[in-house]
Write a protein that binds this DNA or RNA. Sequence first.
DNA 1: ATGCTAACGCAAAGCGATTCCCGTTAGGAG
DNA 2: CTCCTAACGGGAATCGCTTTGCGTTAGCAT
Lengths: 208, 208
Amino acid sequence: MQDHSRLQGVRRPGGRTARTRAAVLEAAMAELAEKGYAGTRIEQIAARAGVALSTVYRRWGNLDGLIQDLVNDITVEQPIPDSGALESDLAAVGRIIVGLHRHPVHRPWMDALIMTAIREPGSRLLLSETIQARIRRAAVVVERAVERGEIPADTCADEVIRMLAAPFYYRMYVSGEPVTDDLAGLSAARVMAAVRAGAVRDPGAAPR
Amino acid sequence: MQDHSRLQGVRRPGGRTARTRAAVLEAAMAELAEKGYAGTRIEQIAARAGVALSTVYRRWGNLDGLIQDLVNDITVEQPIPDSGALESDLAAVGRIIVGLHRHPVHRPWMDALIMTAIREPGSRLLLSETIQARIRRAAVVVERAVERGEIPADTCADEVIRMLAAPFYYRMYVSGEPVTDDLAGLSAARVMAAVRAGAVRDPGAAPR
DNA sequence: ATGCTAACGCAAAGCGATTCCCGTTAGGAG
DNA sequence: CTCCTAACGGGAATCGCTTTGCGTTAGCAT
């Protein structure tokens, strides 16, 4: 294995280097979306980007490294819902998650992320951080509900979002059941019940 | 790719064939447990089993096929708790799931299963069926609670178990947060709140 | 006990992933 | 504008995965 820490410290970040990076990342994204993780060939990415194979390996090391870099570039920013009622906000957040998974471009990314995270400890950390950032963003709907006095003040906002999101990923990657739009509403209702009962307080894990 | 349907229809299932199969599966299990999915080499499995490399490839095709066969052999049977109260039963089921993941032998299997399921549609189906079988077994604790009149009669037992299990897998494979024993109790309490509120009825997905 | 052939062992070969070497191009500091 | 060298291009070489051909062993039907 080589260094690859250059991802953070390139000596000449401008001009050609930047063009190469952009081209390769775009090609990788397209290939992943079309062929999926298993069907993606580094050589194809290089060819599509009009770049030498060795360039890809020098800068990213392998497909996993490429994906890690890709994630940093793509972290999807969705508007946070604010309907005035927590349950409908949660349902909206749920639909965003469903949408992410159903979108033909995003699904292969998630697949690749999960695969990579299982294989590479470094990737696991990256995935963990990416998800955590998304949770934090979505958690404001819970915090607003607390301010409104809609739910107990000691509710753990992050845990609420995790509880909401878990079923989607569970179905996608474990039980294999279909992920449908109405799952968002169902999941939101269940989470609400737990929150109202005051069952979502002290986090089971340190929020890092 | 070859046939590999021979996994189900071997012409000479006895004697040498059976010995080979047992030896290879045991070796595969050991290698997966020691090295994990990424570190497992088919050649190592063959060597450990005292079998020719080509034999492994002829019968199982690749590591994924081997894992599929392995799963059929291993489906873990745990006793189903029956404490008389649903919440403590759920917590016990949760602890079983936690234990499965923490056990040094089972963790690589789950990793391998998830990986394989993402790569191979056939494996996805297999994982789906395996999980469904486990859900069904665990769901009896919910059915008993219904008979006791402890929870609404129209509660969907399978969904309760899914709701209980989802956070564990979510933490393991998505958010990357630690999976601890007390998570079992927390998760059980949250599920109970939703069930009592009657929020876990009509299944969001057809039960297969 | 005997014969047929499934299943095995061995080894060569093709394929993609990854590394390495060497010559060339082009940022960007001076 | 010039020079230094980071970064690139091209291709050979290595490595693990997987397939295939051929000869051998051993179930199991008779």
